[in-house]
């Protein structure tokens, strides 16, 4: 009797310790793929990760082949991809963020209205639509009427993918504000729009900004919807009505051409680094600008 009383706590302690180590092990296990990916990209990509990557457009298959035969590093970089990604994302941001924030404000303000519920559910559904499907739909909506592939079509596809994330993050960060802020604003005689624009949105700015950054980093590496909307381009293009390329699209092209294959790694590494940086920036902003 006495013995069991003494051993019981020890047994329970042991059990909790085993559980703790198990949880730690598993969480470390989930990290392994990430480190393997980063390691592999660095190992294979560092040779091509040079200044040219940022300043030169992608080489043709022939140039790459000649370099390969003579044993040199493959000339050229992914400037056209970087420029295209920047252009497509910039237009996507202009399209998605105001619309997403406006919808988020509506959802946060009219939580229980039937229309708000419908919009909320539809926005969740939108998040689940495969990106290639969005790409094909945008092909029909934008590429066909404009009689050509364009950066604008790609931006539209990415904007549609960003919308649910922007809507949700806006709604959630507005909901976290106390009602007393809105009441205080209205009690000073402010109109509803002034209270939303001058008090509520600025007060939840860090949440909005973080949400927007995460949405951007999420769609940055998208390839499928771009394949059917922007086509690709061998040169730097800043015209939204013209075919464009993007970093992710270039990676796809490198993958399809054995001569260019070694550029896959350096461009993937760069894309990954950009996405990581945006994520870290989003996290630090969320922490730093948080309002008590």
């Amino acid at each position: 009797m006495k013995k069991t009383k003494l051993s019981a706590p020890r047994y329970r302690l042991m059990k909790s310790r085993i559980f703790f180590y198990l949880v730690c092990t598993f969480s470390l296990l989930t990290m392994i793929p990430l480190f393997l990916i980063i390691g592999e990209l660095i190992r294979k990509g560092y040779k091509q990760f040079n200044f040219d990557l940022f300043t030169k457009v992608a080489p043709t298959s022939m140039e790459a082949m000649l370099a390969r035969i003579s044993g040199d590093a493959i000339p050229g970089g992914i400037l056209n991809g970087l420029a295209g990604t920047l252009l497509i994302l910039a237009v996507a941001i202009v399209l998605a963020i105001p619309l997403g924030i406006a919808t988020g404000v509506y959802l946060a303000e009219k939580k229980e209205k039937p229309l708000a519920r419908l919009v909320r559910n539809l926005s969740d559904l939108l998040q689940g639509i495969p990106s290639i499907v969005i790409g094909v739909i945008v092909y029909i909506w934008v590429v066909k009427p404009m009689a050509g592939y364009s950066a604008l079509a790609g931006s539209t596809a990415l904007a549609i993918m960003m919308l649910p994330m922007v809507i949700r993050s806006t709604e959630e960060s507005l909901k976290m504000l106390p009602d007393s802020l809105k009441e205080a604003g209205l009690a000073l005689g402010g109109s509803y729009s002034a209270v939303v624009l001058r008090i509520l949105l600025p007060s939840s700015f860090s949440g909005l900004f973080t949400g927007a950054l995460l949405a951007i980093s999420r769609v940055m590496g998208e390839t499928a919807p771009l394949l059917v909307t922007v086509l690709g381009a061998a040169t730097v293009n800043w015209d939204i009505t013209q075919p464009t390329t993007a970093v992710s699209l270039l990676i796809w092209e490198f993958y399809n051409d054995p001569n260019l294959a070694s550029l896959i790694w350096s461009s993937s590494l760069l894309l990954l680094l950009i996405v990581l940086c945006i994520n870290l920036l989003a996290k630090s902003i969320a922490k730093k600008w948080k309002i008590q």
Binding site: P178, S180, L181, E183, A184, G185, A187, L188, G189, G190, S191, A194, V195, R198, I199, P202, S203, F205, I291, Q292
Partner: peptide, 27 residues
């Protein structure tokens, strides 16, 4: 004018910004 149970200054505004908030909100 109304004063609430818990102090609720506007968190994004400075002290003087808070005092002037009513004017700002009324354009």
């Amino acid at each position: 004018g109304m004063v609430f149970q818990r102090p609720n200054p506007f968190p994004t505004m400075s002290i003087s910004g808070n005092v002037l908030a009513g004017y700002k909100l009324n354009n």
